[in-house]
Design a protein around this nucleic acid. Structure first.
Lengths: 353, 353
DNA sequence: CTGTTAGCGCTTTCAC
DNA sequence: GTGAAAGCGCTAACAG
């Protein structure tokens, strides 16, 4: 710890105001306002002069005043949970970055809030909205009977979810067709000769979890493989549950030769545990992930995964929320995107024993 | 892609205003305002009644109006670069989450902005500040001759950096003593018998990079090992550079048996490449990281790393920025935190050949 | 202790 | 095409 004193404390520079620009030009405030906002009823000549002066004075309009008048904050809120662990998963953080970038393209800023106490979650949505700090929300990881969705829908707050929900017909969402993806993942594994394929699943309260499990089952069926519910081990999208899940699967001596995980983090955890138990991947065990986070490529071995683009999701969501805030009907913005399998080296035919 | 029409379009609920609460109570607006803000010159009885009514009407003050009047946004800005790749590293995203959580504890929100075009970076700081959307900034990854710092200091904008800078005496910062940490890392490796230890470094324009390199050198010295500058291979904190760096080191047949990487991502990349080249870690090669991201524990093998707490950094920075916005002198807020080595399984004595 | 009067900086009628 | 007046919802002065 260090501490010193200095006099280099710069003097805050006063911000130029609209009135000052108007004064300097000898015109009225409305003229400046409309010129800067490019209204059609201002002469080109005037616009030019105004812009010049604004520039010269380093004028940047106060969004506070503008917000108060216009009623818009030009900001979208994103709440993440389990704050103490940072932005939960790698995918979430990639998505967050992509979303921020995409929103910027629409002139919107992103307000990121870490929810500490789950009980205060709804309150926070309420506060942010009531305070007028945000014009709408993006929700991640939709849950089964997600109270956030009910709450926001009830008050007509614009929002789009990343992931469908029970009420999917009535709100805007974007989602990856994980059901289809998981089915394809299983078929892929089956084509490599695997006959006993397990799944380490996600939190049971997350909406997409059941979709992924359905996909798993559908894949098994279309590959002509039997479905054994005990081969679905519960998890929570963490690497830790991948470790646990794998151990459990191995201990139960179920004869599993391949595992499809709910996401990449879980897959990495599973692989790490496999190594620890002396199982080599993919020679003795194939492991496949989901999401296609960047780290997956660098893992040992590089992870085969069902990939989808965080950047595209971010872009799409940004456009959707812009539309919603602009008054579009929520149900007109619903998009299902495909995932695609990226084969790397964590999967392969099982070595003959 | 799907699209439907529905009539479940809820009617936006009008927000209650201060005036309405005052009216309902038959008192003046200032009374309500002061009661809600817990001013001492309002009777307890009145406060109680006001709070009750505010609650009943679901009143939440408009932060827009408040901001305009008070001149504060109760929001701190954080700009991240290379947006398209999401929040750059795992550490950055952990830190961001921790910061958001900590700020919340002080009643501040976090505005996250993804900088797309590096040339527009300063403009964005300027805009956010001038617009009054934020009361201050947190800067990550300070650079050598960091123009952001000059810019913000010149106009007296409150900010704290995560990482020191050339101007460290004159602004607020928090930093990890990475120099010391790297020195200890080297000594640790030396104690395990390594005589030829390389380093895969970070971007040369990042301020802490040279600190880490100094630490590397200092560690070598105190371990009585020769310093060979060619054993420092340049990188950029990515996993990709870890792969490249490792390959280069191996190709050069320099006899390296251990590598200290600028961060965990680079270490993971290096290990992944090592496996690809058929080198086993740690039997044939030890690799150590820096940061102690959560993923490090799940890697194969689990990563030995110089760890520090993103949560603590977040907490500290939040307190610091609160102080600064409150008028504290920047130089009174400078904190150097230690890192500590966490031994896992990516390091060990080199196997005899 | 509480109410009245102003005004933060902008945008929006509505005259000219 | 442009300017004057009003007001978004709040809080800081000042009276009372």
């Amino acid at each position: 710890m260090q501490s010193r004193t200095t006099e280099t404390h710069a003097v805050p520079v006063k911000r130029a105001t609209l009135a000052e620009v108007a004064e300097a030009l000898g015109v009225g405030k409305p003229t400046v306002s409309r010129a800067l906002n490019d209204y059609p009823d201002i002469s080109e000549e005037t616009k030019r002069r105004v812009r010049e002066m604004a520039n010269k004075l380093g004028y940047v309009g106060s969004s506070r005043a503008r917000q108060l008048q216009k009623g818009a904050a030009d900001t979208i809120g994103l709440l993440v949970t389990a704050a103490s662990e940072g932005l939960q998963s790698a995918y979430q953080s990639e998505f967050t970055g992509a979303l921020a970038a995409a929103l910027d393209g629409h002139g919107l800023d992103l307000l990121l809030h870490a929810v500490q106490d789950p009980a205060a979650e709804i309150d926070t949505y309420n506060r942010l909205w009531q305070q007028g700090k945000v014009d709408g929300f993006v929700l991640m990881r939709t849950r089964i009977r997600d109270e956030r969705i009910n709450f926001l829908m009830e008050r007509g707050v614009p929002f789009v979810t990343q992931g469908r929900s029970d009420l999917a017909n009535h709100h805007s969402w974007i989602d990856i067709d994980s059901e289809e993806a998981f089915a394809q993942g299983i078929e892929f594994l089956a084509r490599q000769g695997h006959r006993c394929i397990a799944m380490i699943s996600g939190d049971s309260d997350i909406f997409s979890t059941s979709l992924r499990e359905h996909g798993y089952r559908a894949g098994l069926e279309s590959a002509g493989l039997p479905y054994d519910p005990t081969l679905i081990v519960p998890g929570d999208f963490s690497a830790a549950c991948g470790r646990l899940g794998l151990k459990q699967l191995v201990d139960s001596a179920s004869g599993v030769t391949a595992i499809l995980c709910a996401n990449d983090a879980t897959a990495m955890g599973a692989i790490s545990q496999a190594h620890e138990l002396g199982l080599s991947v993919p020679e003795q065990l194939s492991v496949m992930g989901y999401d296609g986070v960047r780290m997956a490529e660098m893992f040992s071995p590089p992870l085969t995964t069902l990939s989808h683009s965080a950047a595209e999701s971010g872009e799409r969501i940004a456009s959707m929320i812009v539309g919603l805030v602009g008054g579009d009907a929520p149900a007109n913005h619903q998009i299902l995107l495909p995932a695609q399998i990226i084969e790397r080296r964590s999967t392969g035919p099982t070595a003959k024993e």
